[in-house]
């Protein structure tokens, strides 16, 4: 945290994370709190009560709206006499970042998309680190046939073009849920972690503390998971941080190939893909520019923190 750029990046990510988690409180077609027809509703934007869904809220006694008054999936958010032409509409005072082809508010979709994209990136890296550390640790400590097999699998995964593999794998499961995507990404991205941890374990296993543990009768499992892996964490942190950034980028690429998070769910990749699809609207620049900026600044912030982590790990070694 020495450099100013690192602090700015951390602050940016913190704000982004909070707004992504609280996306429903920032952009929703339902208000934060409302009193109508003698009944008070608290946080209908989160609970989404059926009673409110198609009611005209302009007659409410009092109302607290979310800062952005549109949901991510709400089409043709307003009927507007001042805008006879069909959407996409350019940014104005009602839609700060404009709307897409279906009249959905870009700002609302960006904030809700942040939640999906960050979720995918975070859990992808979590799975990749978990699998990579376990396999790398086992291969490094046990050696022999186990090492040979795991190393071969690793080589196969590294030789094979990742996008091609994901393309085949994800065309199997086309469901609305994002978990198959997360699982597939995580299970293809563990190789770098495994390679690092294996190398680290190979240098650690002849140290005294491992010898001591073995002399005390610790099982191989205990030595790997309690003694070796915690000491091999430092380089993994670096890879994991950069991994979050590249997972965000990979999600956008997969969306573009039509195998990412299934539409209409808003994810950053889906937003960019939509921008490409609607390129025939000449000059609808806001569709491509705002999601692009959001992705670029987020990944940049993540990478800046990755650089900081790398510097501190290098300095320690």
């Amino acid at each position: 945290m020495k450099r100013r750029s690192t602090r700015i990046a951390a602050a940016f990510l913190a704000v982004l994370l909070i707004s992504a988690l609280g996306a429903d409180l920032i952009a929703s077609d339902l208000p934060i709190a409302v009193r109508t027809d003698g009944q008070t509703y608290l946080f209908p934007c989160i609970t989404k009560p059926v009673a409110l869904q198609s009611r005209d809220l302009s007659t409410a006694e009092w109302i607290v709206r979310t800062p952005i008054k549109y949901g991510p999936l709400q089409t043709l958010a307003v009927t507007r006499e001042d805008r006879p032409e069909p959407p996409p509409w350019a940014p104005d005072d009602k839609h700060l970042l404009g709307t897409d082809e279906l009249g959905r508010d870009v700002a609302a979709r960006l904030i809700h998309g942040a939640r999906v994209s960050l979720l995918v990136a975070f859990f992808t890296v979590l799975i990749a680190v978990g699998v990579g550390m376990a396999l790398g640790g086992i291969a490094g400590y046990l050696g022999g046939v186990v090492d040979l097999i795991i190393s071969r699998v690793l080589e196969v995964m590294q030789t094979f073009p990742l996008v091609f593999f994901l393309l085949a794998l994800l065309s199997i499961v086309r469901v609305q849920s994002i978990w198959p995507l997360i699982l597939a990404l995580g299970l293809t991205r563990w190789t770098e972690v495994a390679r690092l941890v294996r190398a680290e374990v190979l240098t650690l296993e002849s140290r005294e503390f491992v010898l001591a543990a073995r002399a005390l009768g610790a099982s191989p499992g205990r030595i790997i998971f309690r003694h070796l892996l915690p000491n091999a964490m430092a380089p993994v942190f670096v890879v994991a941080t950069f991994g979050v950034g590249s997972a965000i980028l990979l999600e956008t690429a997969l969306s573009f190939l039509g195998i990412g998070v299934a539409p209409p769910t808003a994810s950053w990749g889906e937003l960019l893909t939509e921008a490409h699809r609607t390129l025939q609207h000449p000059g609808a620049w806001w569709l491509a520019v705002f999601p692009g900026l959001a992705i670029a600044s987020t990944v940049l912030a993540v990478n800046a923190i990755g650089e900081a982590v790398r510097r501190s790990v290098d300095g320690r070694a």
Partner: peptide, 24 residues
């Protein structure tokens, strides 16, 4: 360079296509 690394490559491609190709 760090910034360039953080931009989705297909977004660059789409932008390049929009600016340098076609009549727009």
């Amino acid at each position: 360079l760090l910034t360039a690394w953080s931009v989705p490559s297909f977004w660059i491609a789409v932008m390049a296509l929009m600016i340098f190709a076609g009549p727009r």
